[in-house]
Design a protein around this nucleic acid. Structure first.
Lengths: 145, 145
DNA sequence: CGTTGTTAGTTACAAAAACAACTATTACCT
DNA sequence: AGGTAATAGTTGTTTTTGTAACTAACAACG
């Protein structure tokens, strides 16, 4: 007969992290999905290109820790929808350079603005110091410390 | 030409939360997957039953915020593998009561132990106070505040 | 009763993710 | 050079998830 124990799922950090991640991703997901029909992988690729400028799929993979097949398919869809262009590297013809089109850049700017506002809203529940500490802890947990 | 901006994905809380959640879930996932061939949904159902004793699928759904189809399938698989038994409620024959078998209970105890140790390891990177604050913040962000 | 609305749980189908195998190109090594 | 290994990216196949529609049982109201 299992007895009601004190240590619950609700104390388990991976669980808490997942719940918080899911909940906080939801509202924003509506935006990039609703406005641009994007998936999360696509939004991430877009963001990386908007942030860092021209990149290859490999570089995106290194920074984002997304699997290369995910990236490949995201790039495909973004390119079909004219959010980015792909140009082969002449020195190494295996890889290609990805650049946002003006439509891609516009989408990036729009979504980024929404992201910043959304983040501000999340942060508003806490003090500046708490948020700073949260970020540090999350980075550490994510292995990006 | 997109310029390198200061506010990056790495500051975006939903992103950070996702990364931290993914990273921190990974090692533990190996365990329930490797030892018992379970999926995360199955592990969660198992945990709920281990924690609270007999429950219906609906009750699990209320506590876990998992969609009922996920629970339905998790219950099916756990039952096939003899980790739990299902018995119809005689007063309301739509619902059924789920109970861990001894194998289920053993798996729960084993995994729970691993979970606690794992959690302790994660926590060891921080001070007690930091961890306490992290939990509070995550609960709030998860809407479980 | 009996018709209409709810609820617990399942099933079927579509979307997305995971994993493995593949192509094309470049690097290395003798 | 010539063969083997490594790398960038793609494609195919299988799992898992999400969504919607479904069945069976109950509730409530006339």
């Amino acid at each position: 007969m299992p007895q009601k124990d004190t240590y619950g799922l609700l104390d388990f950090l991976p669980y808490l992290l997942n719940q918080a991640a899911e909940e906080s991703s939801l509202a924003f997901q509506e935006v990039y999905k609703g406005r641009y029909g994007m998936l999360r992988t696509e939004w991430r690729v877009l963001f990386h290109l908007g942030m860092y400028g021209q990149m290859t799929a490999k570089e995106i993979g290194e920074r984002s820790r997304m699997h290369k097949t995910k990236i490949s398919r995201a790039v495909q869809r973004l390119s079909e929808r004219r959010f980015l262009t792909r140009t082969r590297d002449d020195k190494d013809r295996r890889s290609e350079h990805l650049d946002l089109t003006s439509a891609g850049l516009a989408a990036y700017r729009d979504l980024r603005k929404v992201a910043e506002d959304y983040d501000a809203k999340l942060e508003s529940q806490f003090t500046r110091g708490e948020v700073a500490m949260l970020r540090v802890m999350l980075r550490r947990l994510a292995g990006m410390g």
